[in-house]
Design a protein around this nucleic acid. Structure first.
Lengths: 182, 182
DNA sequence: CCGTGTTGGTTCATTCATTGAACCGAGGCG
DNA sequence: CGCCTCGGTTCAATGAATGAACCAACACGG
C-alpha cells in the first residue's frame, strides 16, 4: 500500500482486515467474485484495472485465504479464483459499505442492484434482513436483481452485460459469458 | 488514492463508498471517531499517521459528509471532528469488517474489544445483534468494553490508555484524557 | 505446420501518493 | 520575553499505481 507495511502496530481487528482488503481495488475484486467473476481476463475487462495490480491483488487475496486458485482445465492450464469460506464471510462487510453509499451517496437513478433471498423470493433490506424469514441470509442464499438505477448504468463490455442479468451470487458467470459469445 | 480519480467509472455503490472511505488510514480514522477521538493531535498520537495525511483524510471526510468540523473553543480557535448522521451510519460497515477479522484473521489472545448494547447490558454478537432485545442497535446505543485480547494490547500513548476503559461509543474521549493528565 | 487468437501473465518508464522531518503561526502561560 | 501546545503546511525521498509493450503456452483454422 505504502511504506507502513503493517499499519503501524495497530493491534486491532479492523487494521488486520484493512491490511488484506483495504488496498485500492481489492474490495472491488472481491465484489466481482461475489457477482460470479472468476477469471483473470474477466476481472480485467470489468474493472479496467492494470494487469500488474490485478495480479498483485489476486495473489494477496489467495495468500490471505480469501480466494482459492483452482485449476479448471489442464490444457492449456487455466486457473479460476473462487471464494473460500472466509471470502464468503466478507459479504456482510461488502454489503454494508455498498448500502451505506446507496443511502448517503445516492445517485439520481437509485440503486443499481437489489439482492433477494432466493428461498423466500424477497428482496433484503439495507441491513441484509429478509422480511419473510426474518433472518440475515448468507451470500450463498442471495441473488442479485437489477434495481431502478440499472437503466442508467452503461458499460458495454461483455462482463458488465452478463452481470446485468438476475443471477445467484457466487455462482460462476462464465456460462452466461460463453452463451453471449455464441 | 492514485491516478484513477474516480475509480474508473465503476458506476456502483461500493465504488462510491470506497472513493470516500477506501483510502489508506481513512477507515481507521473513522473507527477512532467512533471510539471518541475528536482532536487532531489525538488522532495523530493514536494512529502514528503523518500529519499531512491526517489533514487530507479529515478534510476528505468533512467534504464527504462523514464528519463535521466544529469549533469547541474560540481562543485559541480549536476545532473538533464529530460524526454526522452519515458518519454514524458507517458503523455497520466498520463493525462487519472488524468482526470478519476477529473470525478469520484471529490472534492468539482473542478479540481486543467487545461491544455491548447499553440499554440491555448485553454484548452483541458478530452480526451486531443484541440477544436480549433481538435488534441490531445503532452505534449510539453501544459501549465498548475490553475483551480477552486487551491484555496483550500495549500501546502506552495517553489516547490508547484512555481507549482501554469501557466507554460509550461516539461520546468524546477528551474528559478522560484531561483527567489522566491531571 | 504456419499464422492467428486467447488467456494469463511480466516488465518497465512515468506519474502519483505516502512518509517523516522540518518549519510555521496563533495564542496561552509563567 | 521566551517557551509551550495545538493544528497545521512544506518539502525531498521513497514507494506504489498506471498503462503500454512484451511474452509464453496452447488451440484452432487452413
Amino acid at each position: 500500500m505504502a511504506l507502513g507495511k503493517d499499519y503501524a502496530g495497530q493491534d486491532c481487528a479492523l487494521a488486520r482486515a484493512l491490511e488484506l482488503v483495504g488496498e485500492r481495488w481489492t474490495l472491488l475484486v472481491v465484489r466481482d467474485v461475489f457477482y460470479g467473476v472468476r477469471r483473470f481476463s474477466d476481472f480485467q475487462a470489468h474493472l479496467d484495472i492494470p494487469r500488474a495490480v490485478l495480479t498483485a491483488r489476486l495473489s494477496a487475496l489467495v495468500d490471505g485465504g480469501v480466494l482459492e486458485r483452482r485449476r479448471y482445465q489442464d490444457s492449456p492450464p487455466r486457473d479460476e479464483y473462487v471464494l473460500t469460506e472466509a471470502g464468503v464471510a466478507l459479504w456482510p462487510a461488502v454489503y454494508a459499505l455498498a448500502q451505506w453509499a446507496v443511502a448517503f451517496l445516492p445517485t439520481a437513478a437509485g440503486a443499481i442492484r437489489e439482492f433477494a433471498h432466493v428461498t423466500c423470493d424477497a428482496v433484503v433490506d439495507p441491513a441484509g434482513l429478509c422480511a419473510v424469514c426474518g433472518r440475515v441470509p448468507p451470500a450463498t442464499e442471495l441473488e442479485t436483481r437489477p434495481g431502478p438505477g440499472m437503466a442508467t448504468y452503461h458499460r458495454d463490455d461483455p462482463v458488465s452485460v452478463a452481470l446485468r442479468r438476475p443471477h445467484r451470487l457466487i455462482e460462476p458467470l462464465q456460462p452466461a459469458l460463453a452463451e453471449a459469445r455464441a
